[in-house]
């Protein structure tokens, strides 16, 4: 009888301990998967800004037979065909900042899912030279006139420091909580900066670009319509319908919304890590699952809406 009670107690402890230890596995796995998907969508959006401008320039030329293609305009200024509208160095630095968030989510996942954290590589090899030197990149961009670059330096340093600690210490259970509490707020700062960039710079580019395309297509149709056949009119009107749909998506600030839902999920993860009492933990875990679920749904919807803004 004593043996049975002892075994039951041992099993209970093991199960309870397992539950406690694995508290983060499911949400952190979901967080990591959604982070990877979101960053993939946003990275494609960032990377395509210059090609989008070149395509818009060529679409203008196509709509107006009086315009010729040129690499420099009549005033001698480079056209979007040959000159990057946005500095490639600034775009790359923002992609690298997103990589820091991605590495954070991946290492959090590794930490929650492994039984042998001691097997982890060192922090420096895990981060790679590119990310380790990211602060230098932002410092030089800041000196070179990128007005928002300076704001990225502090949070990136902190996140890199947190990721480093995940490797240098070997105590998984406490580390998952500590990593979320230390890295999460800085990840939020980076994501907020990305969102501000989206709202202040890229949404203006995308919204005016989509409205430009729609207006150009409509004005060109109205000028040409009397000389078009029925089939040509149908084809041109289908193009206008697509442009109208893109303009609607652009106005909804879709990329910014995606970053917002990522920030919400990160906040829920932070709240979950900060919870102490049993009831508090249950509530925060429930909120975390809700935030993660909403984020997963948004990724599917928003990535479809973003695709026309990427050329």
């Amino acid at each position: 009888m004593r043996l049975k009670i002892g075994i039951c107690a041992l099993l209970s402890c093991t199960v309870l301990s397992g539950c406690l230890n694995n508290r983060y596995i499911t949400p952190v796995t979901s967080f990591q998967t959604s982070t990877t998907q979101t960053i993939s969508v946003i990275s494609t959006f960032y990377s395509s800004r210059n090609s989008y401008e070149a395509q818009l320039y060529l679409a203008d030329i196509a709509n107006d037979p009086s315009l010729s293609v040129a690499t420099k305009d009549a005033a001698g200024h480079p056209t979007p065909l040959m000159q990057s509208t946005f500095s490639p160095a600034s775009i790359k630095a923002r992609l690298d900042a997103l990589s820091v968030v991605s590495v954070y989510a991946t290492r959090l996942y590794d930490l929650s899912n492994t039984t042998a954290p001691a097997d982890f590589a060192t922090a420096s090899t895990a981060l790679g030279t590119n990310l380790s030197s990211l602060n230098t990149t932002f410092t030089s961009l800041s000196g070179g006139g990128d007005p928002t670059a300076n704001s990225y330096i502090g949070p990136i340093t902190s996140v890199i420091g947190t990721i480093g600690k995940m490797y240098l210490n070997g105590k998984r259970d406490a580390l998952v909580k500590t990593a979320i509490q230390e890295g999460g707020p800085q990840v939020n700062v980076i994501l907020s900066l990305i969102k501000t960039d989206m709202d202040n710079i890229f949404s203006k580019e995308v919204i005016t670009g989509a409205n430009d395309q729609l207006a150009s297509d409509i004005v060109a149709y109205n000028k040409d319509r009397v000389n078009l056949t029925y089939d040509q009119r149908v084809a041109r009107l289908a193009t206008i319908a697509t442009a109208a749909s893109v303009a609607t998506s652009a106005t909804a600030s879709v990329p910014s919304q995606l970053v917002s839902s990522m920030i919400s999920a990160n906040n829920a993860l932070l709240k979950s890590a900060a919870s102490t009492s049993g009831k508090d933990k249950q509530l925060s875990l429930s909120s975390l699952n809700d935030a993660l679920g909403a984020w997963v749904t948004q990724i599917q919807t928003l990535s479809t809406q973003i695709s026309p803004l990427v050329k």
Binding site: I201, G209, K223
Partner: peptide, 19 residues
């Protein structure tokens, strides 16, 4: 047509002014 042309000019300037 003039509104379209002016809009395009202003947009070209906006892309430079943003930064």
């Amino acid at each position: 047509t003039t509104f379209l042309i002016e809009g395009k000019r202003l947009r070209g300037q906006l892309l430079n002014l943003l930064s």
